[in-house]
Design a protein around this nucleic acid. Structure first.
Lengths: 246, 246
DNA sequence: CGATACGTTGATCCATTTCAAGATTGGTGG
DNA sequence: CCACCAATCTTGAAATGGATCAACGTATCG
């Protein structure tokens, strides 16, 4: 039984608590996904206020959670493969934000009736689903901290450091860096700056030899400097073990 | 059977989904709390990294969740009576932030073994516990939005508007305002500004006739102006019905 | 090959920080 | 009851990070 047997959910909590799942539980989890879909380019997958009958797991690519205020887009969370994007919609029913694809994505749909079933019959798995929403909240808190305390350089460094580590969990990063199809506009939406200023910050970090972000690719030039600049301590990601980074 | 029969938990999800609980479930919930405790003044109730055997519900007063970075305090969440402060510690085990009392507080402790029991035997209540952590996450997202998009005036207005509504849910606010024992330093820690600037912003909002914050009391002078300034739309609080505000 | 999105640059303006000092308040012990 | 202390609040002046406005360069793609 290898990971390939769980094509849609094999990255769920990978590097976190996935090891605590039995093969049977992994199979049940995989069985949650009844249908997958692909999107390319910026595409609103789910709209704020929508009442959902299913939740969405990200299989490939990146999606953002977006809140609109006074005509501006604000990215309040980013998701990497393996993340349940809107599991909270199961309990909250209404979405309080949009879900937007970034680049090419593949997502899977898990009908709420099946989740319901799992909650009833699979206490261990149910715990994991809850756990994954709590990890989201922990990341939210870290974003709040970073927005309250860091300048634009630090915010970008923190964002890159976080994504690097999260992608490392799911084997999508190397010690060199990782692919990231975010525009500078989107980076600025996630850091609370203007895109003009973000452009200067991106250049500054490149010229300072910290990190190079260009052509959809992040190249980490100096990991230590990146972490320092972003006040990054990965404890809040609740990962097991050190960076893998091949 | 009145609310007085649940002295420690009667405000849990009050104004949100509490009505969906049966009297029996309310009694089970109340039974989670084995011990209560009081603290006065700024006091660190729980420390980051602590491994907890119990979770904490706030019965009276205010507590803040605090993350320290480069020597500064950052408030990443505020809690009002009825909130489970660290239910996430049940699943995450380690706390990723401190929990600090503000003014005089009373808290109740719910041992994890009892929560475990509830998860096993009370599916409806279990759903509510999860739900309450999802509400926390929704508030986190709104804070991220406010920090990304609003200037200091707006951030303070948003904070006040949110607390006003949350305290209204639990019958601790009136149309005039509510008690709030936060210092300007703490207000600034929650809005990501310096205390010096917060002082000027507090005065500005008072002189503009929007809201008066002084001597531990918030007096709302112009609710509409407050909501506009803070881009406040309470949908993310998932409340039932309109403001009660007597 | 023109359209359209994305990235880059410069100049100006303003919100906020920083540093520094003083005023007010509440609480405590003599 | 007063004197004193520490925390909190207040104010001013100078420095700055980032926003804003406006233009131009450069990919990319039907």
């Amino acid at each position: 039984m290898t990971d390939d047997d769980y094509p849609n959910t094999r990255r769920f909590l990978q590097g976190r608590s996935r090891e605590a799942l039995t093969p049977r539980e992994k199979a049940v989890l995989e069985g949650l996904v009844v249908r997958t879909e692909r999107f390319t380019g910026p595409h609103v997958i789910l709209e704020r206020g929508a009442v959902l009958q299913q939740s969405t797991i990200l299989i490939e690519g990146f999606v953002a959670r977006v809140i609109h205020a006074d005509g501006k887009r604000h990215i309040v969370a980013l998701h990497v493969p393996g993340d349940f994007v809107d599991l909270h919609a199961f309990a909250l029913k209404r979405l309080d934000h949009d879900v937007v694809s970034i680049g090419t994505v593949q997502i899977g749909y898990a009908p709420h009736e099946r989740i319901e079933e799992v909650l009833r019959t699979e206490p261990n798995l149910a715990r994991m689903l809850w756990y994954s929403t709590l990890l989201d909240a922990a990341m939210h808190r870290e974003w709040i901290m970073k927005l309250e305390s860091l300048s634009a350089d630090g915010r970008l460094a923190h964002l890159v450091a976080e994504l690097w580590r999260r992608l490392d969990f799911v084997d999508l990063a190397t010690s060199a860096g990782f692919p990231l199809p975010l525009t500078q506009q989107e980076l600025s939406d996630a850091c609370g700056t203007t895109s003009v200023h973000m452009n200067r910050v991106v250049r500054k970090l490149r010229e300072a030899g910290v990190v190079d972000i260009s052509r959809g690719q992040v190249t980490v030039l100096d990991a230590q400097a990146l972490w320092t600049l972003g006040s990054f301590d990965s404890a809040y990601l609740y990962g097991k073990g050190p960076l893998k980074l091949t």
